[in-house]
């Protein structure tokens, strides 16, 4: 910004006042009205303890806990009723199971055209050896997209509710970061140092083999999330933030969701309009085969791993 007038003269002109009023940068109360900053309300621990004691005393006097026979009877009946309820529920469920049709009966209601189509032509149309992942990621890819969105929205809601604002976070960082928990347990750290890479590799194996063997994005992502949680519980949040902080979390999660959206929408549009899509199916049984299943599996795996870890971190300390 270059001005003809120097700054001090410009501040005296009407245009300066107008633009300052327009942008709202001038606080009309500052310099005009005498004010004192408000003190924060302090509640001491002793007062909390006193209040708890008083409420307990009141409860004792009202209900007469020590001599009240009805209350004692209620507690006994409660235990018996809880056990009875559990036993009856288990019995009821087992009784219902006995009415289910036998496995493999040709007259069962699940033997209809849809399942026949899936079983007979699934391998040709999707190229996946694992029929289940071929079903949920190609025939019903739209459902799975909804499920992935549910995961995304769930973490967003938890973040809105539990995320600590930055100013408060700086004050309470140490308190929230497991102040009273045992730190630097050498035995646990040594074991996790050996086990964590194996767990991550196992999770990646399950994600990449989603179309060949049972598993896929959801279970593999859960395993990777469990590995992250294990690492965090051994080494603490500071060391985890070196490779997985809020920034990387945002990038990974949004990229995964958008990739799924793009791949999926191409697939839906071509499928719905009867256009031939140009995704090669490959030879069934190879790692690089079966069209859109492998990239979608990777996206879902990233999403699930991020969700698992984010829930854990948000509930533990209110921030990633």
């Amino acid at each position: 910004m270059s001005r003809l007038k120097p700054q001090k003269e410009y501040e005296k002109t009407g245009a300066f006042h107008f633009f300052r009023w327009l942008s709202g940068s001038k606080d009309p109360y500052v310099g005009e009205i005498e004010m004192q900053p408000q003190k924060e309300a302090e509640i001491q621990e002793t007062t909390i303890l006193e209040r708890m004691k008083e409420s307990e005393m009141v409860r004792d006097k009202v209900y007469d806990v020590e001599n009240n026979k009805v209350l004692k009877l209620f507690h006994k009946v409660y235990v018996v009723a809880a056990i009875l309820f559990c036993v009856v529920l288990v019995g009821l469920l087992l009784y219902t199971v006995s009415y289910l049709p036998r496995i493999g009966n040709s007259a069962n209601p699940d033997n209809n055209i849809v399942s026949e189509r899936y079983i007979e032509q699934g391998l040709q149309e999707t190229g996946a050896l694992n029929i289940v992942s071929g079903m949920i990621l190609t025939y019903r890819a739209f459902d799975t997209f909804g499920e992935t969105n549910v995961l995304f929205i769930a973490t967003c809601c938890v973040m809105i509710l539990l995320m600590v604002d930055d100013v408060i976070l700086k004050k309470q960082r140490i308190r929230n970061d497991r102040r009273f928990e045992p730190k630097n347990d050498g035995i646990l750290q040594g074991t996790v140092f050996v086990l964590c890479p194996i767990i991550f590799i196992f999770g990646i194996y399950i994600i990449l083999n989603g179309h060949l063997s049972p598993g896929g994005g959801f279970s593999g992502g859960a395993i990777i999330g469990a590995g992250l949680m294990l690492y965090t519980s051994a080494y603490g949040f500071e060391k985890t933030q070196r490779f997985f902080d809020e920034h990387i979390y945002k990038i990974a999660k949004i990229t995964a969701l958008c990739m799924y959206g793009i791949i999926g929408s191409y697939f839906y549009i071509t499928g719905a309009n009867g256009i031939e899509n140009h995704i090669p199916l490959g030879t069934p049984g190879h790692i690089l085969s079966s069209g859109i299943i492998l990239p979608i599996n990777i996206c879902v795996g990233l999403e699930v791993a991020c969700t698992m870890y984010a829930f854990y971190a948000l509930f533990r300390r209110g921030g990633l």
């Binding site: 347990d185 035995i187 646990l188 074991t191 050996v194 086990l195």
Partner: peptide
């Protein structure tokens, strides 16, 4: 690997 560590915890 894991069971001795969990007993330790």
């Amino acid at each position: 690997f894991a069971s001795p560590v969990s007993s330790h915890m």
